[in-house]
Design a protein around this nucleic acid. Structure first.
Lengths: 402, 402
DNA sequence: ACCCAGATTGGAATCGCTTCCAACCGGGGG
DNA sequence: CCCCCGGTTGGAAGCGATTCCAATCTGGGT
């Protein structure tokens, strides 16, 4: 008869008439074990229904083989993309991934507290959160490696984009189309009453916008700047305010695609056909922008998560990571939401939602050899690039991609 | 001088001149410890920078206090919403959550294998995946509680919606608007050569569609049914096929909002103004549908994740969960992408993207009292138990949560 | 017959905590 | 003055692997 509890390695050893060391060897790849012994042990394992204990192994080994990712506003498409990128790599590398969503500073600290404990995570990926000196010290004291994405941190490997340059890219694009009155819609770090996590990217993109305007000798008009909580509906309202101005902008640069979608909606609402009377440019190039034909600044979101994960894994292997600050390339992706400024404002209302064909969100990435998230695990990501040839066949399953 | 390794409980005990039992007691809420002792121990802990080992505690305790969630196609908005709902609850209940994304059957089995090991996860939430009898048995043998969302499984607590009813809801809506030729666009379970995970919901929604048509005495026209991989661009192409038919449908029901977005795009592309010449109805009511003014069948996505998590937690506390099959309510949300069938097909092109106001994704949930995910994070309830001022411990496990 | 390197094996020591039980302490009641 | 009880404490015994290192077993060389 069986014991009520699940069998342990010792049980297997006894039942097989061997030592626990031997069982351990068999379980872990069976090196240095004679074939007969191996077979015998395997049999017993099967018969007893033995499953190794993750905890036992982890404690003994001294590492949980787990990585945590701390990521704010998980539901935003950009966060999801990063998470997916990181997961694919971590999975492939054999790490469990514990996901910590953060919406408030308290939640952030709560998770950081947990993650700086011993043996909780081998390493941590921190997304879009700027850690205080104290937290950095806490990780260092616990010798828990960390990497960041979209956030700077002294002495920590970081995967970033140049938001200022991105802001310039978008603005330059609009300027090149002849626009002179360009609105900006972005996040405010409004702390009251909502949560305040202090994201910086919107601010930096605004900086880029101003720089580029200045470079073109266009005066900065504060009336064209609207900031609000990161939300499409809010952005729509802000855009409406801009469009109701006596001298409304002919183009709007939104600090994120989500906000740009709000702008599109507001334009529709206010009778400003896009792009004929209003050009719109977003930022991020999230999945849905392709369908909406939104011109946008592409940033390699999924790739950033994957890259951070890879760098963390390197750290965990004890390797050095160079350079500390990894900058990912940006690229302006023009679709049909932005066009040449036309002097005559046609009321017709030709919509920008035109070639709704197989437009994946932006083609192959630009200069810096994006090093596609390789993993066999993300057909989604591939579909994008693989210029979507319709149905059923487009789907590569790059098993053995190296 | 200090040892190179991080201090353990024994180190603290020694340094404080007490036994390890006492240190343990102090760390875990300080019951049955005299105030002076407690203070002394706390001091030493602070001085040594002691942090407890998650693994040590977990192994000793016999449970990792971790829950896993197995979820396919993590990047889809519907998956994200469910994940977020589950995370919020698990977080609050003090569980770590390890997230397993699944895009292929191999990946599914890989993760299932890991999750059925001992001491990996206390319980597992399984989303949209129908487990084979063998896997169910594996979980049972390991006495690892599981719950499912959007998937049936014998003897397992499941949180579902009635997809057939949903299909009928959408179809009935279109019928009530006078439509008679209604197209359907959904997922195919096309297994070759891509991944095949066998989701059922699209099929069930199609069933509902057919039932409703039959109920209205409308013959079923196979030409109006198009199936393809779940993807907006694919859906767009399928919709284009429908619209190019000699006798195109006046309305299309898409099995998901993502696909509906593709349909919208195709309509635009083919010059079928929505809703004037084509009504479109989606399914899910994901975030972005509100902005697009897409009529859709609302299902409580986030809530379903939260509810599943809650039920799993109940299971983990040893409670019974009733009823086994929990059915969440659906609701037709009419926006402006669907309207009365108009005999005259106006070429004007009034767009459906109208009142783009602050329209959150559908109002409060219908009948069943949605039970909002309560406080995403509420660390403080328990603290009064033990006014512990451990430097790291801002929170704790609601031991005796009822 | 003897010796030795190399291949297998066995199992004690460890990892860091929780738990349980025995031991100890101080004081009110008998 | 002794007993008993509740409040504190100390620390041994697990929890279930991994990892050594020593012991045993080969077979080939001398």
């Amino acid at each position: 008869m069986r014991t009520a509890t699940r069998p342990t390695m010792a049980d297997v050893a006894t039942a097989a008439g061997v030592g626990i060391g031997t069982v351990s060897r068999v379980v872990n790849g069976g090196v240095n074990v004679s074939e007969p012994t191996r077979r015998k042990v395997l049999d017993v394992i099967e018969r007893l229904g033995y499953r190794p204990s993750h905890l036992g192994a982890a404690l003994s080994r001294g590492t949980p083989r787990t990585v945590a990712i701390l990521i704010p506003h998980l539901t935003r498409p950009s966060a999801v993309a990063r998470l997916a990128g990181a997961l694919a790599v971590l999975d492939e590398q054999g790490y469990d991934t514990i996901v910590c969503n953060v919406d408030t500073p308290e939640q952030r600290d709560h998770h950081l507290t947990a993650l700086t404990a011993r043996h909780r995570a081998d390493g941590v990926i921190i997304v879009s959160i700027r850690l205080s000196r104290d937290w950095l010290a806490a990780f260092r004291r616990g010798s828990i490696p960390i990497v960041t994405v979209d956030a700077v941190a002294a002495g920590v490997p970081q995967t970033l984009i140049d938001d200022v340059a991105g802001g310039r890219l978008a603005t330059a694009h609009l300027l090149s189309l002849g626009h002179r009155r360009i609105g900006f819609i972005g996040d405010t770090a409004a702390r009251a009453p909502g949560p305040y996590l202090g994201f910086m990217s919107s601010k930096s993109r605004l900086r880029g916008y101003r720089q580029e305007l200045a470079g073109a000798d266009i005066g900065f008009d504060p009336a064209l700047i609207r900031l609000g909580p990161h939300d499409a509906a809010v952005a729509a309202e802000l855009a409406r305010q801009l469009l109701r101005l006596p001298d409304p902008p002919t183009a709007v640069f939104a600090a994120s695609d989500t906000q740009a979608m709000g702008v599109l909606s507001a334009a529709e609402h206010c009778g400003f056909p896009v792009p004929d009377r209003l050009s719109v440019v977003g930022f991020d190039d999230i999945e849905s922008t392709a369908l909406l034909n939104l011109s946008t600044v592409h940033q390699p979101l999924e790739h950033s998560g994957a890259e951070a994960a890879r760098r963390l894994c390197a750290l965990l292997r004890g390797a050095k990571v160079r350079p500390l600050r990894q900058q990912l390339p940006l690229r302006m992706v023009q679709r049909t939401s932005s066009s040449l400024l036309s002097r005559d404002a046609p009321g017709g209302g030709r919509s920008h939602l035109l070639p709704a064909g197989p437009a994946g969100p932006a083609g192959p990435e630009g200069t810096a050899r994006p090093a596609r998230v390789r993993s066999r695990f993300s057909p989604h990501a591939w579909r994008r690039i693989a210029d979507v040839r319709l149905p059923w066949r487009l789907d590569c399953h790059p098993e053995g991609v190296m």
